[in-house]
Amino acid sequence: MPDHPQKAFPITGRWRAIGHGLAPWVVPVALLFFWQWASSAGWLPSRFLPSPRAVVKSFLDLSASGELWTHVRVSTERAFSGFAIGGVLGLVLGLLTGSFRWVETLLDTTLQMIRNIPALALIPLVILWFGIDESAKLFLVALGVFFPVYINTFHGIQSVDRGLLEMGRTYGLSGWRLYREIILPGALPSILVGVRFALGFMWVMLIVAETISARSGIGYMTMNAREFMQTDVMVVGILLYALLGKMADLLAKGMERYWLRWHPAYQTSR
């Protein structure tokens, strides 16, 4: 354990801040050293798990040849195209069912029933319908994104503060203006929760889709490496997925921070 600067030596706030910043990294770094040591000592056969050094080297080689970036680009494009399709559909349908009673009556029960089918259970059918080409992956990603966005949009619209709606109407708002000034902003926190879940699902679905079959992308790179027992490349692929997932999460957080800056939870200084 590192000595906690706060207690050990109360010097300047700067040291304290650095200590606080470093503390969470102590365990991962220690694990990394242990892993490297276990590999070097021959405890961990490289066909089982490569050493961290080998992973870094493999990463550098792959990115120098440009191969890595092609795969990352293909996977990212896939993820966000699927996200765009599923997200827009979920948003539009959620807005419609949330805003119009008759659309809700017409569609919501059906959608809730479909939601109960695990998306991954559809894979055999999806392969049957789309084969194993690009559209199958887009479909799976879009499906994974659709439901979190749809449900949270619907719920967000339904739970807009009725008092504020009442107020808006008595202050002369109606139709589109009421929608823009009160209903949409009121539903936004919930919609963004949906988007954040959706971004998580997006990567899960993409990984599954690319692992089943692909001719490019991170999943292809990883599965291809498996055939040649290149465990270092496999670990690079896995870490890339983790990194991209983290970036998608940061993106979602950034959107929340910007769009919900009025919200007490996001108010830092002013």
């Binding site: 008092g163 504020l164 009442e166 000034e181 936004l188 009025w262 919200h263």
Partner: peptide, 11 residues
């Protein structure tokens, strides 16, 4: 209104 009912997302 008795409760002020300001829109929290507007300044």
């Amino acid at each position: 209104f008795q409760d002020s009912r300001l829109l929290p997302w507007k300044r």
